[in-house]
């Protein structure tokens, strides 16, 4: 357990020792911020139009649902940006150790590959949660001026973190296969994208295969979370997905170590 905490701390700290953390956070905040601004703008416009209609046609006042019209699309925007940003977070997780030769330290001290994988996975996930913090700041502005519902926002963040866990496990696995960070980033982006779009083709595939493809698609499982539903089957999907990714990473590390 001590070794896990030590590696977790080391990994989390090294994000911030290099400029990459700040670049990622700045980028993520800027892009999610502008999406938030655009979504907010169209919501304000819709409200204005609504007021005009009310006056022209003497209709009763309608309440526009801020959760439905602003927050939910905003979460989909965050999911999309995460797809691009997560490979940047995970690319160095393991490949950096291989490149710099510090794997020799990890392998020759009393640390097991399992401890390494767990620590690195949670460090990557923790960093993703940190990058999400500015988006919470944007949403909190809405509470100052309107009355959005809290729980759908809460469940959406749970969904984001679970989905992030799944992507981090994919990225970690790709990172264990190479000592080149660029390849790790491109590889995990490709695999993540594939796992995203696999649902798109479901309509063209047969009934059974279509169902499987739909089930595998990472994004499909996010919908309920965005609507304020925490369904255990979707939670189970993300957890199972992450565990699979971690298992592959573990086997990859062990095989590199024992390959003759």
């Amino acid at each position: 357990m001590n070794a896990i905490t030590a590696i977790f701390n080391k990994e989390f700290k090294s994000f911030f020792y290099s400029p990459i953390a700040f670049v990622i956070i700045a980028l993520f905040t800027a892009i999610t911020g502008s999406f938030f601004y655009l979504n907010l703008n169209s919501f304000v416009e819709a409200s204005l139009m609504d007021q005009i209609y009310q006056q022209q046609y003497r209709m009763g006042p309608r309440t526009l649902n801020v959760n439905l019209m602003l927050i939910r699309p905003y979460f989909y925007n965050i999911v999309l940006i995460s797809l691009f940003v997560l490979p940047l977070i995970t690319m160095r997780l393991y490949s950096e150790e291989k490149r710099s030769g510090t794997v020799e330290l990890l392998y020759t001290t009393p640390v097991t590959p399992f401890q390494i994988v767990i620590a690195k996975f949670f460090a990557g996930l923790a960093f993703y949660v940190v990058t999400l913090v500015p988006t919470m700041f944007f949403l909190s502005i809405l509470f100052a001026y309107g009355e959005p519902e809290f729980w759908p926002i809460f469940s959406a963040y749970i969904g984001l973190i679970l989905m992030g866990a799944a992507y981090v496990s994919v990225g970690l696995f790709i990172s264990t296969t190479t000592e080149n960070q660029i390849i790790a980033a491109i590889g995990s982006f490709g695999l993540s994208l594939l796992l995203w779009v696999i649902g798109f083709g479901a309509g063209f595939a047969g009934q059974t295969i279509g169902d499987v493809m739909n089930y595998l698609s990472i994004i499909n499982h996010f919908e309920d979370f965005a609507q304020g539903v925490i369904d255990t089957s979707h939670v189970a999907y993300y957890i199972l997905f992450s565990v699979t990714g971690l298992y592959f990473s573990l086997k990859m590390i062990e095989s590199v170590k024992w390959r003759a």
């Binding site: 905490t5 090294s14 020792y17 710099s100 510090t102 990890l106």
Partner: peptide, 18 residues
């Protein structure tokens, strides 16, 4: 096997932990 972004102290502390 050095973590080049770390200070000597932090590095040795990490190694001591693991």
């Amino acid at each position: 096997p050095l973590y080049v972004d770390f200070t000597v102290n932090d590095y040795l502390d990490f190694v001591a932990k693991i």
